[in-house]
Design a protein around this nucleic acid. Sequence first.
DNA 1: TTTATATATGAATAATTATTCATGTGTTCA
DNA 2: TGAACACATGAATAATTATTCATATATAAA
Lengths: 115, 115
Amino acid sequence: MKSVCSVKCINENNVNSVRTKMLKDSVYSDISDIFKVLGDKTRLKILFALSKKELCVCDLCSLLNMEQSAISHQLRLLRNLKLVKCRKDGKIVYYSLYDNHIMNLIKMGVLHNGE
Amino acid sequence: MKSVCSVKCINENNVNSVRTKMLKDSVYSDISDIFKVLGDKTRLKILFALSKKELCVCDLCSLLNMEQSAISHQLRLLRNLKLVKCRKDGKIVYYSLYDNHIMNLIKMGVLHNGE
DNA sequence: TTTATATATGAATAATTATTCATGTGTTCA
DNA sequence: TGAACACATGAATAATTATTCATATATAAA
């Protein structure tokens, strides 16, 4: 990391004051990870759809008009993050939201958008 | 786009029911774009820092320990999205939040994380 | 009016992430 | 038991995005 800033250009007081107020670095990682999940059209659609009704992989493919593999990969990601859960019924796997938690965030996004 | 799903695997009723409830495609794009902005550690830190105090580019470099160019590029992005604004004072450019709007979303992210 | 400095920016590169392709697993049904 | 199907998954590829590098612009100060 190169030093790009001579000391005199900085409002040291302000920087120090803000620095004490910053959160732990890992917090920003964690939070940006949450937002990253929602920062993808496909995943947003999946979550939104599942908030309406439990659906199987095939339903989602049909609804979003996407390849099964692409959907499955995204579902795995969402599963790992405990945003969705699944239950097996024979060879069909039904997905639903893990809980309603994430929908609050999405709704906030809709709100933010609608202004 | 290849058809991956034979019709019989689909719960057609469910899919149709959900389909009528889906939002316009562009809405998902818009919303995911908002979340995408917040899905980056650097930008989150910048926004968080600016929510505490107006800071110049150099301050931000120092605070985040990052190259000026990287910071400037991100600031341009945030400016274009009207999330931050700037004012010039001589050769120094001070950035601040455009409004508090975006902080609501970030706070929701913090909340979501803290559970 | 030359020199230094703060910032901006286009282009190149690096890093990350979504999607596809090929194939595997498990279940149903003939 | 084997053929068809729903889904999962590793690896390859495509697409996107962050960062760096080189350099430009604008202002201030000498």
